[in-house]
Amino acid sequence: NLFVALYDFVASGDNTLSITKGEKLRVLGYNHNGEWCEAQTKNGQGWVPSNYITPVN
C-alpha cells in the first residue's frame, strides 16, 4: 500500500511520525475510527492523520 503525503505533518509525540508533502510512505494499518494510520517511511514508523495522505496511482 503505497501512499504519498498531501501536507507536511510535524510529529507531536513519541508514537507519531513527521512527514513532508510529496513524501512516499507505506500504510501498515488504521486506528478504530480511521482518523489515524500507522505509516512507515525511510525515516521511521508512526501514526499520521489519514486525511494527510492519498494512495499513489
Rank of each mutant, 00 (worst) to 15 (best):
N1S: 02
N1W: 02
N1G: 15
L2P: 02
L2W: 11
L2D: 09
L2H: 02
L2I: 15
L2R: 11
F3K: 06
F3H: 05
F3C: 06
F3W: 07
F3E: 03
F3T: 03
V4Y: 06
V4D: 03
V4P: 00
V4W: 05
V4A: 07
V4F: 05
V4R: 09
V4L: 07
A5E: 00
A5L: 00
A5R: 01
A5C: 12
A5W: 01
A5M: 12
L6E: 12
L6I: 15
L6T: 13
L6V: 11
L6G: 10
L6R: 12
L6H: 08
L6P: 00
L6W: 02
Y7W: 07
Y7V: 11
Y7T: 11
Y7P: 00
D8R: 03
D8S: 09
D8W: 01
D8H: 04
D8Q: 09
F9P: 00
F9Y: 10
F9Q: 07
F9E: 01
F9H: 03
F9C: 11
F9L: 11
F9T: 03
V10A: 11
V10R: 11
V10L: 08
A11W: 03
A11S: 05
A11L: 05
S12F: 03
S12R: 11
S12M: 15
S12P: 14
S12D: 12
S12T: 04
G13H: 08
G13N: 14
G13P: 04
G13W: 04
G13A: 12
G13Y: 07
G13I: 15
G13Q: 11
D14T: 12
D14F: 05
D14A: 10
D14K: 07
N15V: 08
N15C: 13
N15R: 12
N15Y: 04
N15W: 11
T16A: 03
T16R: 06
T16Y: 03
T16I: 04
T16D: 01
T16S: 03
T16W: 06
T16V: 15
L17Q: 04
L17G: 00
L17W: 11
L17K: 03
L17F: 03
L17V: 08
L17E: 01
S18K: 05
S18W: 01
S18R: 15
S18Q: 14
S18I: 12
S18H: 11
S18Y: 03
S18T: 12
S18M: 12
I19N: 00
I19F: 08
I19Q: 00
I19L: 12
I19A: 02
I19S: 00
T20R: 08
T20M: 06
T20Q: 15
T20E: 04
T20W: 05
T20C: 08
K21C: 05
K21F: 02
K21A: 12
K21W: 02
K21R: 08
K21P: 01
G22P: 00
G22L: 01
G22F: 00
G22A: 05
G22S: 06
G22K: 03
G22M: 14
G22C: 05
G22N: 04
G22Y: 04
G22Q: 02
E23L: 01
E23Q: 09
E23M: 07
E23N: 02
E23Y: 00
E23T: 03
E23D: 13
E23S: 09
K24Y: 05
K24R: 12
K24A: 02
K24C: 02
L25E: 00
L25I: 08
L25H: 01
L25S: 00
L25V: 12
L25Y: 10
L25N: 01
L25F: 05
R26A: 14
R26V: 09
R26C: 07
R26K: 15
R26E: 14
V27I: 10
V27A: 08
V27D: 01
V27K: 02
V27F: 01
L28Y: 10
L28T: 08
L28C: 11
L28P: 01
L28S: 09
L28A: 08
L28Q: 07
G29N: 09
G29L: 08
G29A: 10
G29P: 01
G29T: 10
G29M: 11
Y30R: 14
Y30W: 09
Y30T: 11
Y30D: 07
Y30G: 11
Y30I: 06
Y30M: 11
Y30V: 10
N31C: 15
N31Q: 09
N31F: 03
H32N: 05
H32M: 15
H32A: 14
H32I: 11
N33F: 11
N33L: 06
N33M: 06
N33C: 03
N33G: 13
N33D: 10
G34A: 13
G34W: 05
G34R: 15
G34M: 09
G34L: 06
G34Q: 14
G34K: 14
E35D: 15
E35V: 07
E35N: 03
E35K: 12
E35L: 09
E35M: 06
W36M: 14
W36Q: 06
W36L: 10
W36S: 13
W36T: 02
W36R: 09
W36G: 01
C37F: 04
E38T: 07
E38H: 09
E38R: 06
E38G: 03
E38Y: 04
E38C: 05
E38Q: 05
E38F: 08
A39R: 01
A39I: 06
A39W: 01
A39S: 05
A39C: 03
A39Q: 00
A39L: 09
Q40D: 04
Q40M: 13
Q40N: 12
Q40W: 09
Q40K: 15
Q40H: 13
Q40S: 13
Q40E: 07
Q40P: 00
Q40A: 11
T41H: 11
T41K: 05
T41P: 01
T41Y: 07
T41F: 06
T41Q: 01
T41S: 15
T41G: 14
K42P: 07
K42F: 05
K42Q: 12
K42I: 10
K42T: 10
K42N: 06
N43M: 09
N43I: 12
N43C: 04
N43L: 12
N43D: 13
G44K: 10
G44I: 00
G44E: 07
G44F: 06
G44L: 02
G44Y: 05
G44P: 01
G44D: 05
Q45P: 03
Q45N: 04
Q45K: 15
Q45G: 05
Q45T: 12
Q45S: 13
Q45V: 09
Q45Y: 06
Q45I: 03
Q45L: 12
G46T: 02
G46F: 04
G46Q: 02
G46D: 01
G46S: 01
W47L: 13
W47M: 07
W47C: 08
V48S: 00
V48I: 13
V48A: 02
V48Q: 02
P49D: 02
P49C: 02
P49A: 02
P49I: 02
S50W: 09
S50P: 02
S50I: 03
S50E: 05
S50Y: 09
S50H: 11
S50T: 10
S50D: 04
S50G: 09
S50N: 14
N51A: 10
N51V: 06
N51M: 05
N51C: 11
N51K: 12
N51Y: 06
Y52D: 02
Y52P: 00
Y52T: 15
Y52Q: 05
Y52E: 01
I53G: 00
I53V: 14
I53S: 00
I53F: 02
T54A: 10
T54C: 13
T54H: 12
T54E: 15
T54F: 02
T54P: 01
P55I: 12
P55T: 11
P55E: 10
P55D: 13
P55V: 11
V56E: 14
V56C: 08
V56M: 15
V56L: 08
V56G: 08
V56D: 06
N57Q: 15
N57H: 04
N57A: 14
